[in-house]
């Protein structure tokens, strides 16, 4: 329901009438580098990867130093098996045996720099993405085309979804999350809005739909408020709610994924 933000539309109108924007220099403090962990297990066959990097100062370029030499393990709590990952490139750790199975709970364990970071995630049961359609909206003088995933939300279960889009093979880099808090058991057709990137008729659109657990949903719900492409940030932004212990940034998520490729019309 958040996407229907009144403020967004109103501000847009005011901006169109009066506002002016410019790039400015803000004197931001330096912060000591923090550890960032991004670990993923999907229901596609492995191997899976865990990436470990560090934060940089705002003024630095967008290259993030990898954390090498960490001990990274993933445990399948159902099978009670532990996979010790190998560092296949700097800061990228790859699994050997673990497989993503819906319903299984996975535990991530990272030891680096004398600190231990742990996280766990449960892979939800998949929900079938039936089709992808398109919705046309006139937003001021611009025709806005949005992809619309169509799927049946299972009744009586809390479901959380995330969506990613690739237009002509280019990742639009917008993360959209949706939960069935107000939609339990409905047949769902929701336009995935883009704030800064647009779809044109004839484009090849690949829509990915992931079924995620609550901790991943919470992470991305708060992440969208502080990511670099968000137009109107919340009043008091803060770091996303992570499921990783010991104040690490990032997330560990086990999710099911599926995608459909369609031509925009």
């Amino acid at each position: 329901m958040n996407r229907f933000s009144v403020k967004w539309y109103l501000l847009l109108l005011v901006l169109a009438l009066y506002a002016c924007t410019k790039v400015i220099n803000v004197n931001l403090n330096d912060a000591s580098p923090q550890i960032v962990i991004e670990g993923i297990i999907t229901n596609n066959p492995g191997p899976y990867q865990v990436q470990i990097t560090k934060t940089v100062n705002f003024s630095a370029s967008n290259t993030y130093p990898p954390v090498t030499g960490a001990v990274v393990k993933i445990t399948d709590n159902v099978f009670a098996t532990t996979d010790v990952l190998s560092e296949t490139s700097p800061g990228v750790y790859t699994t050997h045996i673990v497989q993503g199975i819906p319903g299984h709970s996975y535990q991530l364990n990272v030891v680096t720099g004398g600190q231990t970071y742990t996280a766990s995630s449960v892979m939800p049961q998949p929900v079938t993405l039936d089709s992808v359609s398109f919705q046309h909206t006139n937003r001021f003088s611009k025709l806005d085309i949005s992809a619309v995933p169509n799927f049946q939300d299972p009744i009586g279960i809390k479901n959380y979804y995330s969506f990613a889009q690739y237009v002509n093979s280019k990742n639009l880099k917008t993360t959209v999350v949706f939960d069935d808090r107000l939609s339990d058991g409905k047949y769902i057709s929701i336009a995935i809005r883009n704030d800064s990137s647009y779809i044109s008729i004839g484009d090849t659109v690949l829509l990915k739909m992931n079924c995620i657990d609550k901790s991943t949903y919470d992470y991305f719900y708060t992440f969208t408020q502080v990511s670099g492409n968000n137009n109107f940030q919340s009043a008091s932004p803060s770091n996303p709610v992570s499921n990783i212990s010991n104040n690490a940034l990032g997330y560990f998520s086990a999710y099911t994924t599926q995608s459909k490729k369609v031509i925009a019309k």
């Binding site: 803000v26 931001l28 403090n29 330096d30 912060a31 580098p33 923090q34 960032v36 991004e38 990097t53 560090k54 934060t55 940089v56 100062n57 705002f58 630095a60 967008n62 993030y64 990742n171 880099k173 993360t175 991305f220 992440f223 502080v226 990511s227 670099g228 492409n229 008091s236 932004p237 803060s238 770091n239 996303p240 940034l249 990032g250 997330y251």
Partner: peptide, 22 residues
């Protein structure tokens, strides 16, 4: 609240915050 650093997650830039209203 302004960021004091940045990092990358899911292929996107994210900002790192150290304190509220600093």
């Amino acid at each position: 609240t302004f960021p004091s650093g940045k990092y990358q997650v899911n292929g996107q830039t994210a900002f790192y915050y150290t304190e509220r209203n600093g």
